[in-house]
Write a protein that binds this DNA or RNA. Structure first.
Lengths: 94, 94
DNA sequence: AATATTTGGTTTATTATATAAACTAGTTTA
DNA sequence: TAAACTAGTTTATATAATAAACCAAATATT
């Protein structure tokens, strides 16, 4: 039987966010939006879902006078991502 | 920018079906159901979507008196699967 | 100085998707 | 012959993805 794929990670946009955050210590909203090509609304919703799950942290601050939202992956998120990638291997040709 | 992931393939169950069919020349409904662990209803729906897209063919016959539904991947399906797997690589750690 | 535009988002509404439940049609078993 | 099983399909429901509308503040334009 094929393993389950964490539904929270098996979403193009959430996977993209996690993939970016796995590779860099932090990324802000604007960067994530440009890199993923997502709309702001969609990105906002999916970031919140990842945050709720404890996969990422979200920090709001100001860069000069403009607001800034910084995302970071958590140890829980790293673990979940690794588990997902491993499960995914069973779906891909060897 | 991260590449798009074919939404038709980026679904756990449809990906599972395609993954099985990539690895064997044919598989029947019962086998797919057991291997994926899906409910018959869900499998029926997802097989139909793959068939509509031209990714698989679906052949109905009888094994003795019992009906049998056999699925096979098409060249289009193989291509789509390969493209999907390649795009997916960009989401996974190197 | 007022007004229009842009930035950086959130909230709400709509559409699409996944899944389960209910159903059909026929077969085998008790 | 009635109950239970097989092999599915259809329909309904819950969830998810996405877009559209909105908001507050900053910056640019006339």
């Amino acid at each position: 039987m094929l393993p389950e794929l964490d539904p929270l990670l098996h979403s193009q946009l959430r996977l993209a966010v996690m993939s970016i955050l796995i590779g860099s210590p932090e990324a802000d909203f604007v960067y994530l939006r440009k890199t993923t090509g997502a709309t702001a609304g969609n990105l906002s919703v999916q970031i919140e879902k990842l945050r709720e799950a404890g996969y990422i942290t979200v920090e709001k601050s100001f860069r000069g006078k403009m607001p800034r939202t910084t995302c970071r992956i958590t140890p829980t998120g790293i673990k979940a991502f690794e588990t997902y990638v491993e499960a995914l291997q069973d779906y891909l040709p060897k």
